[in-house]
Design a protein around this nucleic acid. Sequence first.
DNA 1: TGACATAAGTAGCAATCAGCTACTTATTCG
DNA 2: CGAATAAGTAGCTGATTGCTACTTATGTCA
Lengths: 237, 237
Amino acid sequence: MRERSSSAPTRTLPRRAIFTVDLVLLAPRGKHLSVLLARTASNGAKERWLLPCDGPKKGETVEAVARRIMRSVAGSDVAWFEQAGAFGVGKRHAVNADVSICFVGVVPSRTGAATGFEWHVISDLPQLPARQADMVESALASLRDRMDYAPVAFRLLPAEFTLSELQQTYEMLIGRRLHKASFRRALQAAWLVEPTDEWRSEGRGRPAQLFRYAPRRRRGNRRAVRFDLLGESRTRA
Amino acid sequence: MRERSSSAPTRTLPRRAIFTVDLVLLAPRGKHLSVLLARTASNGAKERWLLPCDGPKKGETVEAVARRIMRSVAGSDVAWFEQAGAFGVGKRHAVNADVSICFVGVVPSRTGAATGFEWHVISDLPQLPARQADMVESALASLRDRMDYAPVAFRLLPAEFTLSELQQTYEMLIGRRLHKASFRRALQAAWLVEPTDEWRSEGRGRPAQLFRYAPRRRRGNRRAVRFDLLGESRTRA
DNA sequence: TGACATAAGTAGCAATCAGCTACTTATTCG
DNA sequence: CGAATAAGTAGCTGATTGCTACTTATGTCA
């Protein structure tokens, strides 16, 4: 076994290093998700894009930093956000922080972007610094991990919505197609929505009933809806 | 909507702040988990305990810091480790870092501790600084989230083990009792273990067959064992 | 007006899976 | 030998999932 006690970390003041908070802010864009990127000043040179980031003001929690960045770049309509890990040295970071703490957030599609920022569809991103590219991937994984429990989809929709709209929102967030009948059955079982008396006709086809988000306290020990287990649809185009 | 573009974070060099890496290192202790804590120099005053922590050396990734701390305090037998989030200001930290990046790790029970460090059973910890107490809780949650996918339990056991030993290990890591028949059925379905020809007699009772870890590539799209869904046992004392 | 296209919503089967009870088997102890 | 103990198994019940195929309600276009 190695020598161990000579440098027991907490006996002396530990080394310390510098970090920033980086943000992967997502929004629906048609049928896909898009990410908010910052354009760096391009003096005739090729454009470069970065994730929004900043460090804490004095006494600010990392959550507060993330929230502040989100407000400053996209207004205050954050449907959900969460920490998605810290990304260390080894891959170069945009502003040479030793470590970046990554947050994922989701905002409704109508949300605009501050000047200097633009939405990019996730399947077609410009090249990012290596560490930030990792962060985007990890942020998506975090989002999809939480879909079963966090009511993100409902906050991206108006108060009343059709089940098809809800399903499409889930499909976009999860990144997979879902099977119509199973999706509806799972929602019913979890008592997540309640029907209203209204129906909406969307052009051709049968009108859809409107629902609202109404998470009733579950009877017994009903478990969360496991959307990740719901099968893909092969019947929908 | 708020004023937004005047302080777009990435246009100027962002603020930066200081962090450390803190470690929640777990080990089996009888039927419970224990955490490794560092004793601070107590000059006659009351003893205080802290999580092991340190900052990065130049160019070191956060994972490397975590690994280095683990080696220095408990040798090199780490069964599994993973990042468990960054914890910000607002609650005081041991060494006044702005942020602590938390790692969870698990080591086998035989692992000793470096001088100045001691194992404490998780249900009976001494008081820790508020932020570190949060970290312990969060670290446990991270561990239990990953149990379905990471083969932690197998690395805490010798190469050959009985299914009862395996079940006890899972119960300790998950923090819940499991039902014997369901546990075995789930393992079989997932092809995680294979039987050997050996049996071991453990005193009274029928001898147990020995198994080894042998995760065969799954046929079709078999999903991970969802240990979190397996029921509690009421028949075992 | 009526046939067709389109989309919403439903019924229900077959397969799988979890929770549980109750068993059989193999060993030690007295 | 019988009681105690622990390993391992059988199999029922009810819930959940994946899926196909339906019914219902509307718009469109001849």
